[in-house]
Design a protein around this nucleic acid. Sequence first.
DNA 1: GTCTATAAATGGATAGAC
DNA 2: GTCTATCCATTTATAGAC
Lengths: 198, 198
Amino acid sequence: MARTQGSHSDITGPRIQKVALQLFARHGYAAVSMRQIAKEVGVQVGALYNYLPDKQSLLFSLMNKHMQDVLAAWKEQKATLDPCRPDGLLEEFARFHIRFHMARPDAVFIAYMELRNLSPENFAKIEALRKSYEGELQSILDAGVAQRIFTLRDSKITTLAVIAMLNGVITWYRSGGRLSLEEVEATYWDMVRKAVTG
Amino acid sequence: MARTQGSHSDITGPRIQKVALQLFARHGYAAVSMRQIAKEVGVQVGALYNYLPDKQSLLFSLMNKHMQDVLAAWKEQKATLDPCRPDGLLEEFARFHIRFHMARPDAVFIAYMELRNLSPENFAKIEALRKSYEGELQSILDAGVAQRIFTLRDSKITTLAVIAMLNGVITWYRSGGRLSLEEVEATYWDMVRKAVTG
DNA sequence: GTCTATAAATGGATAGAC
DNA sequence: GTCTATCCATTTATAGAC
């Protein structure tokens, strides 16, 4: 990790984000020091502050990027689908969610575990993005209920239950394990489909 | 919070556990100092160490008590049920889980968020208890599959998915809100039932 | 842009008086 | 059993040399 002195603005910035993501996910925001991050990046502590005003803004930028990414990716995916078929939309949402989140376990971990460590202002911003993402699922469920394709007692609770269930994947899935990504997707989609129908 | 000097061994011990549970749940283990705990309890820092050897053992005792409690409570509940009816067992498991966890949101929060902050030895102990609890659900599912009452692709994944879904309740439920506890129980049970059948 | 050195605050834990 | 005082390590963040 030792770095000879010199200017590396093009690589240090991204490396800080990448290292912080890994360390925050593994040990938790409060348990990781700026010195640990600097060491792993390969610079001294002072250098970090050329790229960020403080530790809090580092956490926020990681969480904000993740939420922006997931929203943008889903909207791109949604654009390729028939907007009038809630069953197709729901299947793609479930599969998309698992695929997207399993590719970014560290970011997902942070997004759901470090909400407490955001400042009130930052919390409000992230919370708004989360609500927006939940809204995507809820409107699919509502549309399905209106078309009498889905049967469920409460679309708000179902939204939260489905997302909680899907998020659980990242707590246990390890690539190269007993099941392939496709099998995991299929198993979860099977449960979601049945839970919202007859 | 001020406390006059004197001996209070009977109340200080339990108060430390109660206060630590609240503070750890709200701010996270790493973000809470022993000084904060002492202040909230109404003693000085030094006094805490009459009741615990270090901060880590405080976290462990909270998590260990919670896991022992949930296992004991479920076994008591199970003893009143017909062991040969997986459908009845599953419904009671789902309802029990929601009821028990919603009555202890702080303990649940800690049990699922602070695993990273346990020492390796303590982590192994808590993990064993969690696996034991998951095993209770999985054996219900396996029995139901054997009796051809349940239809599911993978009992291990289904176990984790159901628990993740049920745990999600504590992230949003607030008593006195739109739905009663009974309605929440019924809604979740409805989803679980459908997810593991036809 | 990075380094070294340091400020100023806070952390866990302990010793000894009462 | 609790308090006060303190040790010692570590924290975030900054200042100024290169």
